[in-house]
Write a protein that binds this DNA or RNA. Structure first.
Lengths: 110, 110
DNA sequence: CTAATTGATCGTAATTTTACGATCAATAAA
DNA sequence: TTTATTGATCGTAAAATTACGATCAATTAG
C-alpha cells in the first residue's frame, strides 16, 4: 500500500545537516582548529598547515564561509579569516541540542 | 619555495569529521530524530516517516551504522534500530569540545 | 507448502565533492 | 613601471554521494 510521500525535511533538519556537513571533512576541521588556536584571525598560513594545495584549501575555506562559520576580510594583500561568533554559537546550540536529546533508556532495546 | 607537505590529518580530526559527515544529510538527521523521539528502538517505520524510498533510507541507516552512531538488531521479521549510547556520547564530546574551544576575542579581527 | 512482509543489497544514473594545476586580479615591493 | 606575492576562481578529472527500482533472503501468516 504505497502512500505517496509528501513530507519534506524540516528547515531545522536541513540547517543542522548543513552545519554538520561543513564539518564533515578533516581539512575543514583542521582549518577551524587553526582558527581556534590562534585567536586572532590569520590568513593563508592555513595553507602551510594543511597537506593540501592552495587552491584546495581555498575551496574548503569557501565552503566554511558559505555556511557562515567563518568570515574573511581583506587586509591589504592578505586575507584574514576567523570564526564567525554568531554562526558558530548557532551551530553549537543546534547540534548540541540534538545530542542532548538522548536519554539512555537503559532498559529494553538493542 | 615549495616545501613538500608531509603533515597528514590527525586521527582526531578524521574521527571528528566522520561523525560530522554522518550528520551531514537531512535524512540522517531525521532518522536520528525519530530514534530519539521514540525512546525504544523502532524498525523501518522510519521509512514511513521520511520522504525517501525504502532502499534509500536503508542506505542512510547503513551509513549511520557504519560510524557506529546507531545499531540495528534483528527481531524476527523486523529490525530494531536505536542510538548506540557509547558512540553517541563520544561524538557529543568530540564535537562539543571543538565548539567549546571558541573564546570570543571580542577585539581585533574581522 | 505458498503468500506476503520486511529490509538488505545490487546495479545504475545523476549529482556533488574533492583535489589539483593554471590563471587572474589586486596589492606590495623593487 | 616591473616583478613578486597573495589568494580567488576556472577547468577538469576522479571519486564519492544520493536516490531509486529490482531483486534476494529470511521470517511470518495463511
Amino acid at each position: 500500500m504505497e502512500l505517496t510521500k509528501t513530507a519534506q525535511f524540516t528547515d531545522e533538519d536541513i540547517l543542522m545537516a548543513r552545519y554538520a556537513k561543513a564539518l564533515g571533512h578533516p581539512a575543514r576541521i583542521a582549518i577551524l582548529r587553526v582558527l581556534l588556536e590562534r585567536k586572532a584571525c590569520i590568513c593563508g598560513d592555513i595553507v602551510d598547515e594543511l597537506p593540501l594545495s592552495q587552491s584546495t584549501v581555498s575551496q574548503h575555506l569557501k565552503e566554511l564561509k558559505d555556511v557562515g562559520l567563518i568570515q574573511g576580510d581583506i587586509d591589504g594583500k592578505k586575507v584574514c579569516y576567523c570564526i564567525n561568533e554568531q554562526v558558530w554559537k548557532q551551530a553549537q546550540e543546534t547540534l548540541g541540542a540534538l545530542f542532548q536529546r538522548y536519554t539512555s533508556c537503559d532498559s529494553s532495546c538493542c
